[in-house]
Design a protein around this nucleic acid. Structure first.
Length: 375
RNA sequence: GGGGAGAUACCAAAGUGGCCAACUGGGGCAGACUGUAAAUCUGUUGUCUGAAGACUUCGUAGGUUCGAAUCCUGCUCUCCCCA
């Protein structure tokens, strides 16, 4: 399922391949977020050609509320429903336990939610979350967890982690008692928690590793803590998570965050940043970060990114994109999103090449610097 | 020709004696965004200053008043109705 092609000599980075029922995923990889069965504003065609994403995310909570599992089931699963033949990973709704905290209540059984759409009441249990993800038909399903907030004290973090671990046991049990509905294999990734406490992270990593799943995730990071703390947690956790299985850092992050995490042994990432920030006018480029709404780009007729893998980034000028974004034209959001995702995917592809040719360490160092600053 | 209404900052539009450098919206400028309740949210927008503060503003020229965007008079301009 996962094989490692090469380990970097000077860092913990690895280049590998994860095989799914809907294609191979070369790692390290960034997975665009498509919460509601769509990467906002991007046609599948561009997701494949311009961005070349082998896998995208969708979200259990959001799809469960709308369109609902019945529709997805009748469509024959998410791939068929959205006409996407590459891999899909579904988040379990654990992040919504965190982000919709005002509208939910946690119990041992699960999380009781108020729908943000119509206020209706729902309960998510580990069993139900597995069932929904079976119905959705994701290639990679995520265990149901609590993503603890930051800051959070050791006591809360400990209790939260224990709950996530008990929920994991139930997820694994439900997994073994159910079968895929559409004939293609589904994997389950459990999630390490433990907030910013090394002792808890160690315990959690041991627990997650012992589940013996084909891949493992690291959650509860980049929720507000300093990046250095996140890196420290990654080092602690990756010491323990099995080296021969993919490691997925959930919800991260900036291009620099991703390169730093790759160098610490992480293989998979997802984040709303390239898509959401793109819609809001923030562009990531090889020359650094730019806010395309700024006056300084008003008459810059050079391409958004002349050296991009994406034809779209090479075609439209900064001045034109600025005009579109400032005018609130939907094409502005589309171009920005495609550009950013294309940048993220080409960044991880280059990281992979550097790992394979043994130059990752030095390349990472100079690249992090350049892409983190404002252009 | 007669009658009426009105002129406020980049635009629109509140404000009818001190709480007004002036509500609010738009526009402009900048910032935020990390497993998406986000094509969203925040700040700022007379001049000088880091700030305190100071200075110049409400068509225009005068006047009344301790004090005027607000009251009075002349002028200029705009809009509406009737002929």
């Amino acid at each position: 399922m996962f094989s490692i092609e090469r380990r970097d000599g000077s860092t913990s980075a690895r280049a590998g391949v994860l095989r799914t029922a809907h294609g191979e995923i070369q790692t390290p990889i960034f997975m665009p977020v498509g919460t509601g069965a769509t990467v906002k504003g991007v046609l599948h065609r561009d997701l494949k050609s311009e961005i070349n994403a082998p896998v995208i995310l969708a979200n259990t909570y959001h799809l469960y509320l709308r369109p609902g599992t019945d529709i997805i089931s009748r469509a024959g699963g998410i791939h068929s429903f959205m006409a996407w033949d590459r891999a899909v990973l579904t988040d379990s709704g654990g992040y919504q336990v965190f982000s919709l905290a005002a509208n939910r209540k946690l119990t041992e059984a699960g999380a009781i939610f108020r729908s943000h759409i119509d206020g209706s009441k729902h309960i998510f249990t580990p069993e139900k979350v597995i069932d929904i993800q079976r119905t959705i038909g994701a290639d990679i399903m995520m265990a149901f967890d609590e993503c603890a907030p930051w800051p959070c004290d050791h006591n809360y973090a400990h209790r939260s982690m224990d709950l996530t671990h008990r929920w994991l046991d139930r997820c694994v049990a439900q997994l073994s008692e159910t079968e895929p509905l559409y004939g293609s294999e589904q994997m389950l990734f459990p999630i390490v928690q433990g907030a910013v406490y090394s002792d808890l992270r160690r315990i959690s990593a041991e627990k997650i590793a012992s589940a013996g799943m084909p891949g493992n995730a690291i959650g509860g990071l980049s929720v507000g803590e300093p990046a250095e703390v996140m890196y420290e947690m990654l080092e602690v956790v990756n010491e323990i998570l099995p080296a021969d299985k993919p490691r997925y850092l959930m919800g991260v992050g900036t291009p620099a965050n991703i390169l730093e995490a790759i160098s610490r042994g992480v293989d998979m990432f997802d984040c709303v940043m390239p898509s959401r920030n793109g819609r809001n006018g923030m562009l990531f480029t090889r020359e650094g970060i730019i806010n395309i709404r700024n006056q300084r780009w008003a008459s810059d007729f050079s391409p958004v990114d002349a050296s991009s893998d994406s034809e779209i980034s090479r075609t439209y000028s900064k001045a034109y994109l600025r005009h579109l974004v400032i005018s609130g034209e939907m094409l502005g959001a589309q171009i920005s999103t495609i550009h950013n995702l294309s940048f993220y995917l080409s960044l991880v592809r280059e990281a992979r090449e550097r790992i394979l040719d043994g130059t990752f360490g030095t390349w990472k160092k100079e690249t992090v610097q350049r892409i983190s600053e404002r252009a």
